[in-house]
Structure formats: structure tokens, C-alpha cells
Amino acid sequence: MGVSSKMMMMIFLGLLGFIGLAEAQLKLGYYAQSCPKAEAIVQDYVHQHIPHAQSMAAPLLRMQFHDCFVRGCDGSVLLNKTEVGNNDTEKTANPNLTLRGFGFIDSVKSILEEECPGVVSCADIIALVARDSVWTVGGPWWPVTTGRRDGRISNASEALQDIPPPFSNFSSLQTIFASKGLDLKDLVLLSGAHTIGIAHCSSFNERLYNFTGRGYGQDPSLDSEYAANLKERKCKTPSDNTSIAEMDPGSHRTFDLSYYKLLLKRRGLFQSDAALTKSLTTLSYIKELVNGPLEAFFAEFGQAMVKMGEVQVLTGSAGEIRKHCAFVN
């Protein structure tokens, strides 16, 4: 067995050990008897479509964050607003207006419903699709426990409250993550998802044009050359809400350590990115990752994803298994 093979085996065994500490009612291979082909169906669909649309990997990963941070990992982010009760669901909340990939999840669900009607939850599909998408574009792999059930409640106000906004400072990030049972190391690792994907100018334009809140001023913590480049090439006006910029310029399609290296150069795109360097604890984690091997980041990112995927899950007889991910049964 070569060095890389040994390392991957150690990572796999370490992740399995980590899972042993996780929610007891979730388990690896939960659908082994009830829908034996479930995980293979998800994987095959991802492997068929993501190579031709690699930019979808980041949104599908982001979807799991946004799902798990509101009411736990229960698929509530997928629910549509209905006329009954006129309830504004998580989908309609500002943090989720730029979410993409709902059709992708619906397509996977449709195939699984044909194979095993009423068996595989939408919450589990989100978790499996996120992992398989990241792996398909060359990122880390992690074991996904399954057995989540779908929630029946989805409120826009809760999404506004629980999803960390891009302008978060360190204190608010620490508080929100702690409320989900996630620590500062998880914060640094999960923020590493910004190594792939793009963001709309509306998410960070105030850092460029209105940091004082009075219609002018640039964030002094943002590298001036980087800020000038963003103004010149990406977000040319304060009112630009449609243009986009890479979260990890020059490497936004590659799952690597570049994001953390840019943080040390004051080139994190969001205020929430820059905030990670404001604490000695998180700064030391960043430096440790930058100075370590990529395999170590992959392994630790996988551990953080396993941990996040266990947040406030519904299992047993709680919730339901939705027939359609956008609607309660």
C-alpha cells in the first residue's frame, strides 16, 4: 500500500470513528434493506451531470449549510410557499434568494421515488448530493450517515435569524455556530467551502462603497489592491446587485487551500471571511491548515461536514418522508 493509500485509509478510519460519536439514530447504509440502490442512484446522477456543470457543486454544498442551520438538517429549505396559511418559507428569505440546485434535488428525488416510493428523505438527498458533488469536482469525500426525516415547518423569519450573513462579525459567527453545536474549528473548516463558487456583488458591495453606512467608505481591513480590482472588473457601482465575483479568485473551481491563503493576505471576499482572522484561535487554525498538507484539510473538512450533518436531525417517527421535496405530504 502506497503512502497516499495509507493516508486515505487513515482518514477513512478516522471519519468512521468520528461518526461513532454522532447521532445514534443515523447510520451508514440506513437504506441497505429498504432501498439498496438509493446511494448508488444519487451518486450516478451526480456523476452524470456535475462534470458537465461543475459550477453547480458549490450551490449544492451551500444548500446543505442553509438547510442544516435552520431547524437542523430536515430539508425545510426545499419547501415552497403555499397559499394555505400564506406562509413565507425559507426559500423566500433573503439569504436563500440566490440558492440554486432545487431542480437538481427534485430530479434525484423523482428517480428515487420510482425506485422506492416514500422511502428516501429529501434531507438525506441534500446530504448525499452535497458530498458526491464535492467529490466529483476533486474535493474531499466523507461518509454520510442517513436516516434523516423531513420537517413540515419552514419559516422565512427563521432563515433570516439563523443563517450567518456575509457581513457577520466574529462574535455573531461564534454565537450562531455555537447554537448549532459547532465550535471555532468547525467555523474555520466549514468556511473553507468558499474555496469553490461565486457570490453576487450585493453580498459584499458595502465593503467597497459604503462601509461607514453613510454612502461612502471602503473597509480598511480589505486589501486595497484587491478592492480596486473588484471595483474595476466585478462590481463597478454601489448599486450593482447582479454581477458576480469568485470567492476564491484564480482557484474558484478547485477545492484547495487557496481560500485560506487569501485570508492571510486580507483578501477574503466577505466580512465574515475577514472575521476569521480577528481571533487568535481561528487565525491559528487557518495558519495550521495553510502550512499543512491538502489531505489534512480534506480529512478535517469531512469531519466538520459529518458533524454539521447531524445538527438537530429528525429521526424515527418524527417528521415525514416527503413524496415531493417542495411540498409537505
Rank of each mutant, 00 (worst) to 15 (best):
P166A: 05
D150C: 03
D223A: 11
T136E: 06
Y260T: 09
L187N: 03
Y285E: 13
W135A: 10
E320Q: 15
K81E: 14
G302H: 02
F204P: 02
H200M: 00
D186E: 11
G151Q: 02
L257G: 12
L28K: 12
G181H: 11
F204C: 03
R214Y: 14
P59Q: 01
L276V: 07
N291Y: 14
N241L: 08
W142N: 07
F177Q: 07
V84Q: 15
V313T: 11
A199C: 12
E232P: 08
K265G: 05
L79E: 05
M9C: 13
G147L: 01
S203T: 05
T89W: 04
N329M: 10
Y226L: 07
E232I: 10
A57R: 05
G309R: 05
P95W: 11
L208T: 09
G309N: 12
S133R: 01
L13D: 13
K91W: 03
L269H: 06
G292I: 08
G181C: 12
M305E: 03
L128C: 06
C122N: 04
I41M: 07
H66I: 00
E39L: 13
F211Y: 14
R148H: 08
E39S: 15
E39W: 10
S272G: 11
A156E: 11
T92R: 06
F327Q: 15
V84P: 13
G309D: 09
A57D: 09
E83T: 09
L189P: 02
M247H: 05
K109G: 03
Q25D: 15
S76H: 03
H47P: 02
S202A: 12
L173H: 06
D124Q: 09
A159Q: 05
Q43H: 10
L208I: 06
Y45E: 04
P117M: 09
T98V: 01
N169E: 09
